[in-house]
Design a protein around this nucleic acid. Structure first.
Lengths: 329, 329
DNA sequence: AGTTGTCACTCGAAAGTTTAGAGTGCTAGA
DNA sequence: TCTAGCACTCTAAACTTTCGAGTGACAACT
């Protein structure tokens, strides 16, 4: 635990740097603290020895280190009240009944991205609350089939299948009927399992090529349960931050946005609001990602706000808290 | 029509500049032409007076102007044979039967993007060859319905609908049955029209709230026919070209890639291979876009290769021609 | 013991200078 | 019509200068 003035100094430096993106000198904060710049310099040197501040060169002002941001977020940050206008804009979305429920998240994040000028990512999939409502299989030309899976919350997934010519449509239909009879109302994440232990033994008896058919359905359900939808809002916003003013950094970040591995960097498994500063996230050492899970109607997933390490932590956290508490209604 | 040596000079300058991205000086091409650099200088001055070449400053070498590239593409460019390896890679995709047909285009463009280091865009939608195969409407919770449209080529589109409480499920079912009976096998782009003139009068008779129901279906079909899928391959490739080595250019181009208006800049309406140099395209004055339409099984659309104006025109055109002639098989 | 004023010192960013080399236009002669 | 040669221009890179913001250290003060 740091002394009181040390904390004050750290807090002021972090907030000043967040505002101006320029190293903070001792003189710029000494009047707030009612002490001389020499005193502040001593404190700064101490904070630096703790690894909370860094210098860009020997005679420069100080910049928060990752550890410094972390200390700020954990101990010093105060919630920042939203302005009335900001609240109003979000409330309007929550109370707009004509919106498809699944659009509420998107619209909210458009507003948040606009207000903060950071990039948002929505990573969602059909939630476990979805139950299987219907399976449909239609024959297409030359041994192609299309399988359609529908859940009670209105999620639809389809997949084209190629089935060996030796399987008759009649056999397909029997299998489909069986699934529809036995698996309806099964939570979507349990379907694969039930398919294996309840359906497979039965179709084995009276469908000749049951392995192929079973595999086809298994794949469809599996794809459904694992299918992620990812969606960026304001993808280029973060590029306007001064830390991304050179071509290499921009290219590197944009490449990471395009990479399919990004799912791993974005997904959040635990409830609550989580802040990943710099190397704490697996996307890019130069960014901070603030994440939270959401669940709305039949869909759940992760909301992530991607900004510079020099992010307005207080504002983003407040916005996400507001979103979290209002989304259920 | 230019004189023969003038054309030679222009061709050499364009090709040299495409290769090195550096202004071309007279001495670097005079040995190829067996004449002195002074002669070449005179020719260059003449080409500049025609607006085919430009200088970056008073004593610099020459760079092709847009008009220069245009002249090159229209009159001077020679088809560039693909290497055996390149052909092989593409052939493998065409002959890989385990691929979903709709993936053939994607895979091919992945190869092409990799070979050229440019960015490809695929803009596709369900082709007019798709015929309506089935319409399905399922009731969800509180007055929501989900409507699913399936075509004979295996395209599926679905849409959530909110229907006034006063419409009974029975009425919905009658309408659906009617559509399935009367519109099956109708080409997808004619469905809206038929719906209006053949179905609407009938449902009007025995469905009370027929307007609402009719509108719901009309929207679903309309969305289907107009739904575009757009998909980039190697989105960041073009950023590695030396003309995009500054942050502003990159940001501007990436923003344009994200903008939904990009569809208008990408879509090609006519058959054949078309080259849009710099200001000839509506996307960005600094890029060239080479486009061609494709049609494969139940899907058609535009393939576009986006590169710098200093693009390997011969190579890209050859690749697209190869794709065009081989795609049908 | 903690705080302050002072001063020599460091460094970076911006502006200016120098230099080398690539390339040009022009002109006179083949 | 082409060529050789020359004076000239301009850029890019390297180097220098200057300015000011900021520091660390230390002695003096409370």
């Amino acid at each position: 635990m740091l002394g009181e003035r040390l904390e004050q100094v750290l807090k002021l430096i972090v907030e000043e740097y967040i505002k101006n993106a320029k190293p903070v000198g001792s003189s710029s904060i000494c009047d707030v603290l009612n002490c001389s710049s020499a005193t502040v310099r001593n404190d700064m040197a101490e904070l630096e020895s703790f690894g909370l501040l860094e210098k860009t060169h020997i005679s420069s002002g100080r910049v928060p280190s990752e550890k410094g941001y972390r200390y700020y977020v954990d101990n010093l940050m105060e919630p920042k009240d939203m302005t009335g206008e900001e609240m109003l804009k979000l409330q309007q979305i929550f109370h707009n009944n004509s919106l498809q429920i699944s659009d509420v998240i998107n619209k909210s994040l458009e507003i948040i991205s606009e207000m903060t000028n950071y990039t948002s990512v929505i990573l969602g999939n059909a939630s476990k609350e979805n139950k299987l409502k219907q399976v449909e299989v239609l024959p297409l030309e030359n041994n192609n089939l299309i399988a359609i899976v529908i859940t009670d919350k209105g999620h639809v997934e389809h997949k084209n299948l190629f089935i060996d010519a030796s399987i008759s449509l009649d056999e397909v239909k029997r299998t489909t009927d069986l699934i529809n009879k036995l698996l309806i109302d099964t939570p979507i994440d349990e379907v694969s399992e039930k398919l294996e232990f309840e359906i497979k033994p039965i179709i084995g008896k009276y469908v000749r090529q049951h392995e192929a058919l079973y595999n086809a359905f298994y794949n469809v359900f599996n794809d459904f349960a694992n299918r992620n939808s990812m969606h960026f809002v304001g993808k280029t916003n973060i590029l306007n931050e001064p830390e991304f003013n050179n071509a290499e950094k921009i290219k590197s970040l944009i490449s990471k946005f395009e990479d399919s591995n990004i799912v791993n960097s974005i997904e959040e498994k635990e409830d609550g609001i989580h802040v990943y500063i710099g190397s704490e996230n697996s996307l890019d050492d130069d960014v901070t990602i603030i994440k939270t899970r959401y669940k709305i109607d039949g869909e759940e997933g992760t909301i992530a706000i991607v900004g510079p390490k020099r992010m307005q932590y207080d504002k983003v956290v407040s916005l996400l808290e507001f979103l979290n508490t209002n989304i259920d209604k």
